[in-house]
Design a protein around this nucleic acid. Structure first.
Lengths: 230, 230
DNA sequence: ACCTGAACACCGTTCAAGT
DNA sequence: ACCTGAACACCGTTCAAGT
């Protein structure tokens, strides 16, 4: 009869329930999201996964929004900050494409990312990197600072918009409906819409991303900030 | 004892329940949203308002997303499409500012607008007007078509981001937290973030809007679409 | 201080049954 | 064809009570 120096053996059924912690909760949230999507990341589901009650989680996270922000920051760790590329422009395009990719893999998160400010480490690293590349490209201090905002906002919005199209069951039908609406727009009421229907619906996502990126970079470098405000 | 030629008078308590219709449902949804916000626009609440059961609404709208799209299109009727302004550029800025204003008045709708494609009349009129202004400014066909997308996407994202800051009870505290994070970012790990903290947090919403708008217009007119795709 | 069960006040959507 | 009640399968958050 060997004795366990660490005390009596009790509840041998499962490994001792690990203590709750903010990191544990966020890690579980990320795992559930990867497996089943952000929709399934609910307080009740997380609690079940951690073998406790939903109310217990509120000791470590203030609410759902804060949890979403933490999950998002965690995901941002996957963004490629040092992509290959000859010029600063290619590297900047690479970082943004990687950011967009990460969001596209998690449709619901892309939507959440628009209203959520992740103030975590990974978000800061991303901002830092984009600032560096813009400065390398010759942007002024204000151009770089405001430019980051503009670039991230657009990348996020594009991912959110695209991701809804991808996931929602009705994606195909909805796209058809939009196509139909544009193509059938009467030329008397909507002359330009009618004339440019082809262009409005043209372009692969890649081609559009490239053009959008070009527009922003060109604009950022050529547009001085309002002299009255600097 | 007068007789009613239209039949026996029954249920004199309230005016006869009006027949359900898609327009009636959307109008009620808009009214509830104006009064109490999009969060309160639920199937159950709308049904209550219309003196019926939630299930009955599904005869006229497919689901919540479709209802949101209809509400959004209705709201877009308030956008000023003919603002005063000397140049096409001023008028375009006016249209976009008005669009942003409308969304800012309804925070939750701004967020919904990112993933929702309103295919209604008012949305089409907005697109038509922006196309016309861009063409007037000398944009090519593709520049105008893709430019509308870019301008609307960015205006929507800005409104969504800003509106969350405005409404969420914790807005002030969250903004302080972000400010603090940026100001306290260690210079060794985040040299650029640290050096540009002032610029990152600078600028009134108006100043940023003006600069963003300038960046997009400049970029749209100067960036040719990829020759391989046109 | 941390954890819990139970409750509060809700959701969207489906479906069998009625008219 | 349209409308209904009831049910299904959930939510986030709070709070008194325990340890």
């Amino acid at each position: 009869m060997s004795t366990n120096p660490r005390g009596p053996v009790s509840r041998r059924e499962r490994p001792a329930k690990p203590a709750l912690s903010r990191e544990g909760i966020v890690a579980t949230a990320v795992a559930v999201m990867r497996a089943e999507g952000l929709e399934k990341v609910t307080m009740r589901r997380l609690a079940q996964e951690l073998d406790t009650g939903a109310a217990s989680l509120y000791v470590y996270v203030a609410n759902m929004a804060e949890l979403h922000a933490a999950v998002l920051d965690q995901l941002l760790g996957e963004v490629e900050l040092e992509p290959s590329g000859e010029t600063w422009r290619d590297r900047l395009a690479g970082v943004l494409a990687s950011y967009t990719d990460v969001l596209l893999q998690h449709p619901a998160l892309a939507r959440a990312a628009i209203s959520v400010r992740p103030a975590g480490e990974n978000y800061l690293h991303l901002v830092e990197r984009i600032l560096a590349l813009l400065l390398e490209g010759g942007a002024s201090r204000v151009q770089a600072a405001w430019g980051v905002d503009l670039l991230l906002q657009l990348a996020t919005a594009s991912a959110a918009e695209h991701s809804t199209r991808l996931q929602s069951g009705s994606s195909e039908a909805e796209w058809d409906a939009l196509t139909h609406t544009v193509r059938e727009a009467p030329g008397e009421t909507y002359p330009n819409l009618h004339a440019l229907a082809g262009e409005l619906l043209s372009g692969s996502p890649q081609a559009r991303f490239d053009w959008f990126f070009g527009v922003l970079v060109t604009g950022i470098l050529r547009t001085p900030s309002d002299p009255r405000s600097s």
